[in-house]
Design a protein around this nucleic acid. Sequence first.
DNA 1: GTTGAGCGTT
Length: 281
Amino acid sequence: MSHFGRSGPPDIADTYSLLVLNITFRTTADDLFPLFDKYGKVVDIFIPRDRRTGESRGFAFVRYKYADEAQKAVERLDGRVVDGREITVQFAKYGPKAERIHKGRIVEAPSKSRHRSRSRSPRKRYRDDSRDRDSRKKSRSRSRERSDRDRYRAKDRDYRRRSRSRSASPDYSRGRGRGRYDDERPSSSRSRDSLSPRPSPRRSLEPRRSYSPRKTSPRKNSPVKSGSPDRRSRDGVSPIPRSASPRGRPAASRSPSPRNSDVGVSCSPHVPIYRVHIRIS
DNA sequence: GTTGAGCGTT
């Protein structure tokens, strides 16, 4: 069964692809097969691996023959610890060659379907349960103060996700064609080619408002780890236990707290204020 | 020898 992924996709007609994330870099298709095969007929398993290093990229695709089996595998194997890591199983979202997937199912030929594009949810990726890893990406402000040496250090790992999400500023690129903000300018002949970047209308002044529950030492610790490899963290930066098992999935979304902010209706529209000038002759 | 965000090959 080790021929999975060796010789292309056997038959991807009416198959249900599952994306298996967070597998170890050593996990192979042979390791995943017995697990997934217990829950259904596994047609193919493919683990994308890097062209350069040959290492697996940490995720795999498992194709089932039937949807119910795939669904059951998702429910059963999602969160299962495989080889020391907790894997995440979910339906694959994109097809191998931009093939259309209808809820995990790969319909045969894209040309057959007349529908050009149903809601593929192009931009918005699946809002996966916010794991601890997400916080790292978020907190990573777009500071380009990373020294070049650090970039090379992290390049061997970052090349994956860079190739995927190229543009880092989708919002700004949208208004490239024609400025939407023309409206605000009444008749100012100042063309939009002004080098001065317009101030963003609303920019969060303070990203993190939550004060740390721990007592923060008043010493100024640089938030970014700018170089300084010799920086010995002897303060006892507790190494995060790797088996933190972030399986905690916040099923209950945080309460939106719909406070009854009574909008001031004090000024009733019915009673306009008339300002009458009484001129005493 | 390591790492860990993310959607695919003959």
